[in-house]
């Protein structure tokens, strides 16, 4: 383990906590970015270099920007007057706590049986690319199909607005 792991874990969890607790919606989105960046660093720590960079590119570069765009387009950047938590917040908190208790108990219980420190696997980008077009070619094609569907969906949503404006 080591100090770096604890620092990164604290950074990630602090970002995540801030993202769900802060009042201002834009601050939440920025805190979310901190959590994403912390996770990317954790991926790097786990020797998953490619996944870490992909995480930064996709989440910090795209998803976080999408979120702030959505916040600005829905006038969400002003702090709401009537509280930020929903009426049923207590139930939600209990459910989340219960889920964490169950997961945590399972992990603590099975901790002695988990495998210990192993040598870092050598993963090259070439190997990843090779695997993507051989063993994982079907999921790759399905993801491509999903993206096409998402793009068409986005265009249709935008086009319908235009027709209404006419």
């Amino acid at each position: 383990m080591g100090v770096i792991f604890y620092l990164l874990a604290a950074l990630t969890l602090a970002g995540g906590l801030a993202a769900v607790l802060l009042k201002n919606t834009v601050h939440c989105a920025l805190a979310l970015t901190v959590a994403f960046a912390g996770l990317a660093l954790l991926f790097l720590r786990l020797d998953a270099q490619f996944a870490g960079f992909a995480q930064i590119l996709v989440y910090v570069g795209a998803v976080a920007i999408l979120v702030v765009f959505a916040i600005l387009l829905t006038r969400g950047s002003e702090t709401p007057t009537e509280g930020v938590f929903s009426r049923s917040w207590f139930v939600g908190l209990v459910i989340a706590a219960a889920v964490f208790a169950a997961l945590g108990a399972a992990i603590v219980e099975s901790a002695p049986a988990l495998p210990g420190e192993t040598a870092a696997p050598s993963v090259t980008v070439l190997g990843i690319g090779d695997a993507l077009v051989t063993r994982y070619v079907l999921p790759l094609e399905i993801v491509a199909l999903l993206f096409t569907a998402a793009i068409i969906g986005a265009v249709i949503v935008a086009m319908r607005e235009k027709e209404r404006a006419k």
Binding site: G16, V20, T25, S86, S88, I95, A96
Partner: peptide
């Protein structure tokens, strides 16, 4: 758990 709590309790 943090994400779940956020998804279940926030209004926005």
């Amino acid at each position: 758990a943090i994400g779940l709590a956020g998804a279940l309790t926030r209004r926005n």
